[in-house]
């Protein structure tokens, strides 16, 4: 029956999180701009967070929310370092397109 599938359950949240994760991965694979690639990583982390929170809700266990808390901290740290690197790269190469600094040598 269709109505069984419409009623929201854990699967719905997990599939939504899988879709977000995949879209983020596509962003990392397909884009050339290093900042957009960082954004793709943020999207992937968010997809994982959503699955943690959904598991925590449907199993009545708070550990998932604590993991989300940790993931958020690590994501903020990752964004900080990534942006600092992006600023440095931009000052050196005058571009943030990833194909122009393959050499890793100033």
């Amino acid at each position: 029956m269709l109505s069984n599938y419409i009623q929201v359950s854990l699967e719905h949240y997990l599939i939504l999180s899988a879709i977000i994760f995949t879209i983020g991965m596509m962003g990392v694979l397909m884009r050339k701009n290093i900042l957009v690639m960082l954004m793709g990583i943020e999207l992937m982390l968010n997809g994982v967070n959503l699955s943690f929170v959904a598991f925590s809700y449907y199993t009545g266990n708070l550990n998932g929310q604590i993991m989300v808390f940790f993931v958020m901290t690590v994501a903020a740290a990752e964004a900080g370092v990534g942006l600092a690197l992006a600023v440095t790269i931009f000052k050196k190469f005058k571009t943030i397109n990833i194909q122009f600094f393959e050499k890793l040598k100033g």
């Binding site: 968010n46 989300v68 958020m72 994501a75």
Partner: peptide, 15 residues
């Protein structure tokens, strides 16, 4: 929606 209001608030502040 998932009864995690604190995580939601932190999501708004941090992200």
């Amino acid at each position: 929606l998932l009864n995690a209001p604190f995580i939601a608030g932190v999501q708004l502040i941090v992200y």
